[in-house]
Structure formats: C-alpha cells, structure tokens
Amino acid sequence: MPDIEINGLVKRFGQVTALDGIDLTVEAGEVRAFLGPNGAGKTTTIRCLLGIIKATSGSVHMFGQDAWKQAVELHRRVSYVPGDVNLWPNLTGGEIIDLFLSLKGEKLADRSRRQHYLERFELDPSRKCRTYSKGNRQKVALVAALVSQADLYILDEPTSGLDPLLEKVFQDCVIELKEQGSGVFLSSHILSEVEKLADTISIIRAGKIVESGSMAEIANKAQGRSLEEFFLAEYQKEA
C-alpha cells in the first residue's frame, strides 16, 4: 500500500483554482521530491494531505485511509515540518518539542533520542521562541519532527534558513529515515538536495503535475542537460 495516494485532487478557494487535478503517489519507503515555483500549489497540496483544508473534489489517501476523515488517527503515523514556522513566543523550544511529541501520543520517557537530535542540530532548548532567529525556529520544527518516530515524513521546504553544515546534517537524517524504511515527501527548492536524496520526483506548476518519474527517468528526459537547466525549462514551459 502506498504511503500517499492522491487522485484528481482539485482545490478551489472561491473563484481561484489552486489545484487543478493533482495525481501523485509516494510508495512505501520512498523519498519523493516535490518541486515547483512559488505559488504553484505545493503547500496547498500538503495542507490537503494533512486534512487542514478540504479537497473540493478528488481523493487524498495516506496508508489507504482518507486524509480528511481519518486525519486524527493518521497523524499518529505522520511527522510534519511546515514551510512557515509559527511558534508560541513565550514557550521554549524544548517545551514545544515535548508538546508536539505528546500530542502525537508518544511517550516522553526515552530522552536520548531527543538529546541526540538537539545536539546534532545544535539547538538550545531552554530559550523562548521569541528570541530564536528564523533558522533556530526552523530547527525547533525539524527536531520536533525527527525525534518523533513516524512511517511518513512530510517536509515543506525544511532547510530554509539553515546554514550549509546543518543542511548536511539534515541530509544525513533523511538518509537514515530512508534506511529505517520510512517514506519521505520532500518539498524543496534546493536542487542539489533533491539530487542527493530523492528516489522519485514530481513537478507542479500552476496547480498541475507537469512532470513525474524516477531520478533515472528524469535524467533521461533531460537529455544531457543539467538537472537545473531541465527544471528551469519545465518551470517556464507553457501550460
């Protein structure tokens, strides 16, 4: 059973059609990169996946269950890093990590995993979120998601604001998740990151999937061009 299965997903906000028939699958244990220009519908797709907004039509499933109706149960198996991290200014990073774990129904007894990731990302958990920089807020969200043991990780531009060293740490973490057998759905702008981590790629533009396939297939279609040139061409192509 695939981790994610989206068929003919349409989402309209009033007159505006944000998603216009999305088909997308993430097989169990694969890392799928999700690319596209700003405003193409990446975050809207992810919000439909998380049952935060309701599909106008089409079906959205995770682990074979309806993402809207079964949202609460499904989220026990899913870990999520938002693209835009909004946290409570007067709670500390450590408090927020614990809260998120606990809301997922996980036990907090084993502190070693939490400590491990705090050290890897060099995050001070005793500071209030108000005093964190953008990069540090991103780290809180990352650590909270990685500490939690999930079958599927949904990551929406997770490395924005991280320095190259931490970006490397993040990439190692994703590879470890893959070795564990967890699926990863990674929305990203960073092509080198995608090239290194992804098994498969989907490209979205103006609410439609315009390209989809394995890394090998994409390399084949690129016909000798670099991945960057191929993507730029895809982004600019007329619908």
């Binding site: 998380l50 949202a71 609460v72 999520y80 938002p82 998120f100 809301l103 129904g105």
Partner: peptide, 13 residues
C-alpha cells in the same frame, strides 16, 4: 497567527 496548523498536523481532533 498561523499556529493551528502545527497542532492539527499532530494527532489532535
């Protein structure tokens, strides 16, 4: 404030 998403993406009804 955009903070509901962080809660609802966990297992919260």
């Amino acid at each position: 404030h955009g903070r509901l998403e962080a809660l609802l993406s966990r297992s919260v009804d």
